[in-house]
Amino acid sequence: MRILVTGGAGLIGSHLVDKLMEKEKSEVIVADNYFTGSKDNLKKWIGHPRFELIRHDIIRPLFVEVDQIYHLACPASPIFYKYNSVKTIKTNVMGTLNMLGLAKRLRARILFTSTSEVYGDSLEHPQKETYWGNVNPIGVRSCYDEGKRMAETLMFDYHRQYGIEIRIARIFNTYGPRMNIDDGRVVSNFIAQAIRNEPLTVQLPGTQTRSFCYVLDLVDGLTQLMEGTDTGPINLGNPGEFTMNELAKAVQELINPEVQISEVENTPDDPRQRKPDITKAKERLGVPRT
């Protein structure tokens, strides 16, 4: 089995590579442009005879021979995806078109990592896969939100028109080792501020919620989805829900009880509630890691 992982140098991608490389008969190819990923995340595999690392931006076609494609490439932190919004939407649309073209040529199965952001500032709680979302199509986050929604559309169009085997995972907030400490996501942001003895900046009103999944549990879900028969979309995440005030207090207690918590203005279109309904994942992907 030859497997391509786009975005394999990132948080989720590098842990996925670890899991795939543990299969003795798997050969893994990683394509990454290092816009947000790091080669250091893959250093344990560099030089391994079953591993290949390609510096490549998927907005350009990629010609490799593989059996499966895990398509993860895209900046996931608001700081990064808003920094170059045009590149973000190109990655989601042109990059996905290129990966689908590769899958079509090779008749390879392709898994696309979508996001809970497709639900936008949700009017349904918790969010089920059947919910169509409440997304601002011209907002500062839409390069990511709408880009992922368009990529899902492309996945299903290729599936219906060309019979491509597709899998779609809608990933909720994920944390774990190899997070970029300065990427602006709330878990790494609070931890970095506590370590640096800086105030933990909670965006107003502080009652907005998120649900956080450990990266290894998420990777288990991705591989089970790839090996299963369901096209998705399937929510992957932890239904445990925290307000940002609760998260800040937890980090304060664990890392630096002396640090202050301060309130700052929120960013536009920030979702007020985020909690996955994972009924479908439990029914179709088996029992999660304990």
Rank of each mutant, 00 (worst) to 15 (best):
residue 42 L to K: 00
residue 47 G to W: 00
residue 34 Y to D: 04
residue 53 L to M: 07
residue 53 L to G: 01
residue 55 R to M: 04
residue 30 V to L: 12
residue 53 L to Y: 04
residue 50 R to L: 05
residue 50 R to A: 07
residue 38 S to E: 13
residue 34 Y to H: 12
residue 26 S to T: 14
residue 46 I to G: 06
residue 49 P to Q: 00
residue 33 N to Y: 03
residue 32 D to I: 06
residue 51 F to R: 08
residue 33 N to K: 15
residue 45 W to R: 06
residue 25 K to H: 14
residue 29 I to H: 03
residue 56 H to E: 01
residue 56 H to M: 05
residue 42 L to V: 00
residue 43 K to V: 13
residue 25 K to F: 08
residue 54 I to C: 10
residue 44 K to S: 13
residue 46 I to D: 11
residue 43 K to Y: 04
residue 39 K to F: 12
residue 46 I to K: 10
residue 26 S to D: 15
residue 44 K to D: 14
residue 48 H to L: 06
residue 30 V to I: 05
residue 44 K to V: 15
residue 25 K to P: 04
residue 49 P to N: 05
residue 42 L to F: 00
residue 39 K to S: 14
residue 54 I to V: 08
residue 34 Y to R: 14
residue 47 G to C: 05
residue 56 H to A: 02
residue 47 G to M: 03
residue 26 S to P: 09
residue 36 T to P: 08
residue 52 E to K: 15
residue 42 L to A: 01
residue 25 K to T: 07
residue 43 K to G: 08
residue 35 F to Y: 13
residue 52 E to C: 03
residue 35 F to A: 10
residue 26 S to R: 11
residue 33 N to Q: 05
residue 28 V to C: 11
residue 42 L to Y: 01
residue 53 L to Q: 08
residue 52 E to L: 12
residue 32 D to P: 08
residue 28 V to M: 11
residue 44 K to M: 12
residue 56 H to K: 12
residue 52 E to H: 11
residue 52 E to R: 14
residue 45 W to A: 02
residue 28 V to W: 03
residue 45 W to I: 10
residue 40 D to T: 09
residue 33 N to R: 14
residue 26 S to H: 15
residue 43 K to R: 13
residue 29 I to C: 02
residue 36 T to D: 02
residue 43 K to D: 12
residue 30 V to Y: 10
residue 34 Y to S: 09
residue 30 V to M: 09
residue 37 G to E: 04
residue 52 E to Y: 00
residue 35 F to S: 14
residue 48 H to E: 01
residue 30 V to S: 04
residue 34 Y to L: 15
residue 35 F to L: 11
residue 24 E to H: 13
residue 32 D to C: 09
residue 53 L to R: 06
residue 55 R to A: 07
residue 25 K to L: 11
residue 45 W to M: 07
residue 27 E to V: 08
residue 43 K to Q: 13
residue 25 K to A: 11
